[in-house]
Design a protein around this nucleic acid. Structure first.
Length: 259
DNA sequence: ATGGCTAGCAAAGCTAGA
C-alpha cells in the first residue's frame, strides 16, 4: 500500500500535474492540500478518469484538502470526517477516512506566519486540538497515518540553513514541541525510519532561485502509528514535479507499506 | 538574498503563503 501527500497550491492550476503524477505514480491514496477552490469547482470527473474517488472539503481562495482513493486497489473510503470535531473552524484543513484498513488523516497545518502573529497562536491551538483528537482516534484505529503539509521542520537537518532559520516560524521550539507531542502518541516520522540523502527537502521558496540552490525545508510528512510503522518499507520525497513548468512550491512525499 | 515568486480576487494592488 502506498500513501502520498502533496500540497499542490491551487488544484485549478495544478490539475494537469496531479494527472501526470498519478499516471506514473499510481499510489493507493493521494492526500492533497491547498486546493484553493470551493467544492462545486472540484475536478471530480478528471480525477475519476484516473480511477480515483475524490473526497474533499474546500473553501474559496484558501486552504482546502482532499483524499484521492484508488478504489480498484483499496476499495472505497468509509467513515469520512471533515475537520476536527473538537475545534470548530471556518478554515478547511483536515479530512479523514478509513481506506484499506488504515485510518488516513490528511492535514494542511496552519502556517503561523511569525511567532508574534495571532496566526501563530492559532497554529499552536490547532496542533493542540489535533493531538487531543488523534489520541482518541488512535485508540479506535491502531492503523493510522497522518499525512500532510505540517508547516514544521522537525529538526535542523530538515532546514537548508539552520543558523539563518533559528527560532523562526516553521522551526521554532514551540512548533517542534508540538511535533514531538504527535510523536509522543506513538506516531513515527516514516521518512526518518530509513537512510536518506542529506539535505532532502519537500518545499522550496519560489523566489531567489531557492530550488536551484536547494534552499528548502522538509515540512511535508507521513507519520504512521506504531502498528502501521511496522509495515513501512520506505518513504521518499519525489522532487521531480518541482522541476516541471509552473510547479507547486511543494513536492510529493510517498510512503510504502507491506500488506 | 534583509521577500526579489505565485495564486486568488478582481480589475490595481492587496492578502497569503513559508
Amino acid at each position: 500500500m502506498q500513501l502520498a501527500t502533496w500540497n499542490i497550491n491551487s488544484l485549478k492550476v495544478r490539475i494537469g500535474h496531479v494527472q501526470d503524477w498519478l499516471r506514473s505514480n499510481p499510489v493507493d491514496v493521494l492526500c492533497l492540500q491547498e486546493l484553493k477552490l470551493t467544492d462545486e469547482n472540484f475536478p471530480v470527473a478528471e480525477i475519476a478518469a484516473l480511477g480515483y474517488t475524490s473526497h474533499f472539503t474546500g473553501q474559496k481562495t484558501y486552504n482546502g484538502v482532499a483524499l484521492l482513493v484508488n478504489h480498484a486497489k483499496v476499495g472505497e473510503a468509509t467513515d469520512i470526517v471533515k475537520n476536527l470535531p473538537n475545534f470548530p473552524d471556518e478554515q478547511q484543513r483536515l479530512i479523514t477516512a478509513t481506506v484499506g484498513g488504515v485510518r488516513v488523516v490528511c492535514g494542511y497545518f496552519p502556517n503561523g506566519q511569525s511567532l508574534e502573529s495571532d496566526k501563530f497562536a492559532y497554529k499552536l491551538n490547532w496542533l493542540d486540538a489535533l493531538t487531543h483528537w488523534l489520541s482518541g482516534e488512535l485508540q479506535r484505529h491502531p492503523q493510522l497515518a497522518l499525512l500532510g503539509d505540517y508547516n514544521i521542520a522537525p529538526e535542523d537537518r530538515d532546514v537548508h540553513d539552520p543558523a539563518k532559520w533559528e527560532g523562526c516560524n516553521l522551526v521554532s521550539p514551540q512548533e517542534r514541541q508540538a511535533f514531538a507531542r504527535l510523536q509522543g502518541l506513538g506516531l513515527r516520522d516514516t521518512f526518518r525510519m530509513f537512510e536518506q540523502p542529506e539535505k532532502t527537502f519537500s518545499w522550496w521558496d519560489y523566489r531567489m532561485g531557492a530550488f536551484r540552490r536547494n534552499a528548502g525545508l522538509r515540512i511535508d510528512h507521513v507519520l504512521a502509528s506504531a502498528a502501521l510503522a511496522e509495515r513501512c518499507t520506505g518513504c521518499e520525497i519525489d522532487r521531480v514535479p518541482r522541476t516541471w513548468e509552473q510547479p507547486s512550491d511543494h513536492t510529493p512525499v510517498v510512503a510504502t507499506f507491506k500488506d
